[in-house]
Write a protein that binds this DNA or RNA. Structure first.
Lengths: 235, 235
DNA sequence: TTAAAAACATGAATTTTATCATATTTTTGT
DNA sequence: ACAAAAATATGATAAAATTCATGTTTTTAA
C-alpha cells in the first residue's frame, strides 16, 4: 500500500530556483502556495487532454512528462517533454485557445496547479517573470522550427539518432551513460514519426554498430560523437 | 526605371490597426515613427539571415514573406509565411538567441525596422502590447505543433492538400478562387518536405481530379471541401 | 530578340519506409 | 505462480516516395 505523500510547498520546492519561478518574491511565493493545488500521478496517467480548456498552468514538482498530439488516424505524436521544474499548459492559457496537446506522465509524478488568475497576476506585477515567459515561448518556437525541418528533411535513421541525443540533453545520462528516461519503442517511434518496427530495427543496428547498448528500455549512449554524425548535426 | 517610393508612416499605416500595434497610443506611435527605419525589397531578396543576431523587429508594411530554415543538406524548409501587418524577427529578439530562420520576400515588399530598445520599451510600458506578444508566440507554438504532427504522420498527398488550404487561409483567394500568392513548385515542396517532382505530379493529379485548376503558378481552388477531405482534416 | 538559364513535366528505376505475418519475450493482473 | 496481454523482434512483401534521366516550356538577362 502506498503512503499518501505530503503536498510539496513552493517555499521549500527544490526545483523552484532553476525554474521560471526563480525570481519570484517570497511574498508572491506564499500567495502561490496558498492558492495552488497539487496532484499525485502514477506512471502513464493523463494530466490534461488536448481540446479541453485550461484554467491555469501545471508545474512539475517531480517526474517526467510527455506532451503529445493525436493525429488524424489516432496516432500519438510526441511534441516535447517536460520534467521537474518545468511548467506545462501555459501555451493554451496565454493564447486563450483549447489545449493543442495532451500531457501524460512517464513515471510517478507530482504536479502542482496554479490558477489562471494567479498566473496573470504574476505576469502583470513581475516584469522579470513576464520576460521569462516571453523567453520560454520564443525559445520553444525555435526548437519547434528545428523539429519541423528535421522531420521534413531527415531520413528515419538520422531522426532516431537525433532524438536519442535530444533525450540525452533533456533528461541527461546516469553514471553508466544510460539515458535517464524509459520510453517504449512505440513512444520513440511517436517522437520521430515512424513505425514501431523501424525503431526496433534501427536500434538493433545502432547496437550492432556500437553506437548504443540496449537493455530493455534502457539505452546506453556509448559513442555520442558517432551518433551526432548519424544524426547529421553540424553545430 | 523605378520611382523611389515614399517611406510609410506608422500614423497613416493602413495595416497598423489589424496588427500587434493596434492598441498603441498615439504618443507611442510618434515615437516609433521617429526611430523606425524602412526598406524596400524586390522579389526574392533576403530580409534577414539565419544564424545572425537581430537587433530589432521587422514589421511588414507591404508584401509577402517566407520564413525558412536551411536543413543539413542545404535544402530550404519553409517554416511559415508573413504578410502586411505581421511582424517577424521577434522570436530571436525575445529569446536572445541567433535567428533560427531566414526571411525572404515573395514579391516586392516594404519592411520597417523597429530597434530592440524601442520594442522592449513598449513591452514594458504597454501591458496590452505585452499580452499580445505572449498571445502571438503561444498561438504560433500551437501552429508549429500541428505542423509537426502532420509532417510526422500524413503522407505527401495529404500534406500538399493541407498546405494549399493553409495558403488559402493565410493569403486568401481572389474573386476567381486563385490563391493570392505565387510560389514555385520547389517552394511548395519546401513547405511540405518532399521532392519538387512529387509536387508537380500531385498538382497534376489534383487538377485531373477537379480539385484545383493550374495556370503557371496560379492555383485555383475549385473544390475546397474535397481538398479538405484529401488533407484529412477533421475540424 | 535571342541565347542561356531556370522551372516545369514525365517515365523508369531505385531506395526508403510501412505493413503484414508470426514468433518470442516481458510485463501485468489475479 | 500463472495465464493473458502487451511489448519486442524479425522476415517477407508491399507501398510510398525519391532519384535519375531526359525533354519541354517559360523566364531571364545580355
Amino acid at each position: 500500500m502506498k503512503n499518501k505523500p505530503e503536498s510539496p510547498h513552493c517555499s521549500t520546492c527544490g526545483s523552484r530556483h532553476k525554474s521560471v519561478f526563480c525570481s519570484i518574491e517570497s511574498e508572491e511565493v506564499k500567495e502561490i502556495d496558498n492558492i495552488k493545488g497539487c496532484n499525485f500521478f502514477d506512471r502513464g496517467q493523463v494530466i490534461f487532454h488536448e481540446g479541453n480548456r485550461v484554467n491555469g498552468i501545471y508545474c512539475i514538482n517531480k517526474g517526467k512528462v510527455k506532451i503529445y498530439q493525436t493525429g488524424s488516424e489516432g496516432k500519438e505524436q510526441i511534441i516535447r517533454f517536460a520534467k521537474e521544474g518545468d511548467i506545462i499548459g501555459y501555451r493554451a492559457l496565454l493564447s486563450e485557445e483549447p489545449l493543442s496537446a495532451s500531457a501524460a506522465t512517464l513515471d510517478d509524478a507530482v504536479v502542482c496547479f496554479i490558477p489562471k488568475s494567479q498566473v496573470l497576476k504574476i505576469i502583470q506585477n513581475n516584469p522579470s517573470f513576464n520576460f521569462k515567459m516571453l523567453k520560454i515561448l520564443s525559445h520553444e518556437l525555435g526548437e519547434a522550427a528545428r523539429i519541423i525541418t528535421d522531420l521534413a528533411q531527415k531520413p528515419v535513421r538520422e531522426r532516431l539518432a537525433e532524438s536519442l541525443l535530444l533525450l540525452k540533453d533533456t533528461f541527461e545520462l546516469d553514471e553508466d551513460k544510460n539515458i535517464q528516461v524509459k520510453l517504449s519503442r512505440e513512444e520513440l517511434a511517436n517522437i520521430i514519426g515512424t513505425a514501431t518496427e523501424s525503431v526496433i530495427r534501427l536500434l538493433s543496428e545502432f547496437k550492432k554498430d556500437k553506437l548504443i547498448d540496449i537493455d530493455g528500455r534502457n539505452i546506453k549512449l556509448i559513442n555520442i560523437p558517432a551518433l551526432t554524425r548519424e544524426a547529421n548535426i553540424i553545430d
